[in-house]
Simulated assay, not measured.
Amino acid sequence: MLSTPLHRASVDDPSLAHLLYALMSAFPVFFLPTLVGLFINLGQNTSCSGDMLSSHLRWQRHSIIGFMLVGGIGLSLTQVWLSFVICLTATLWFCHRILKGWLNLSDGVAI
């Protein structure tokens, strides 16, 4: 009987990253899917082995955390016009990060 050693295959499966980008893109309707995506992302941080997937998970984490920080600063301001400008800028920046990351993931390119 032949015995072959079992090797753990490290396959870059982008389906989780696609799901997380989809959850991030649901932020205009509800912010809860974005937070769920962040918690899933934080849980997958250590188990991800591929360089491409690691770069996308890091990109998503930084995008969500940056959006929450800048949006929180914008919402805490007392001047309405300044609050609106900062929140609009944060939203446009976040949309840009989602689009750029998702397109790079579809092309198989690391960020």
Rank of each mutant, 00 (worst) to 15 (best):
S83N: 10
Q79F: 11
L35R: 11
A17I: 14
A26M: 12
L16Y: 04
C95S: 03
L103E: 03
G101A: 07
W102F: 06
Q60Y: 00
F31H: 10
G101I: 05
S15A: 14
G74L: 02
G101P: 05
I98V: 12
M52H: 03
F39C: 04
R58Y: 07
L35W: 05
S25G: 03
V11D: 14
N104R: 15
T46Y: 04
F94M: 05
G37E: 09
T78A: 14
I40K: 14
I111K: 15
L88W: 04
I40H: 11
D51R: 12
G72C: 09
L105Q: 12
P5H: 04
M52I: 15
H18D: 09
G66R: 03
S25H: 06
H18R: 15
L20V: 09
L69I: 13
H7P: 01
M52F: 05
T91L: 05
S15E: 15
L35I: 12
V29H: 06
S63C: 03
H96V: 08
V36W: 08
L42Y: 07
L88Q: 05
L16T: 07
T46C: 07
G72T: 08
L75R: 14
D12P: 11
V29P: 00
D107W: 13
L32Y: 03
L53A: 13
N104A: 11
V29N: 08
A9Q: 10
G37H: 06
M1P: 05
L92I: 11
L82N: 11
A90N: 00
L103K: 13
K100D: 12
S55N: 10
L99Q: 07
K100N: 09
S49A: 13
L23S: 04
G108N: 11
R97L: 14
T78M: 10
C87Y: 00
L2I: 09
L57S: 02
L53W: 00
W59C: 08
A26N: 05
L88A: 12
V70K: 14
N104I: 00
C87T: 12
G108I: 09
W102L: 03
V85A: 13
S49T: 13
M24R: 10
L38H: 05
S47Q: 12
S49N: 11
L32I: 09
L69S: 12
C95F: 03
V70C: 04
D12R: 12
A9P: 02
F39V: 10
L99Y: 09
M68R: 03
S76E: 00
V70I: 15
A90W: 01
G108F: 13
G50V: 06
T34D: 06
L6H: 10
N45L: 15
M1Y: 01
V36L: 08
P33G: 04
L2R: 14
L23R: 12
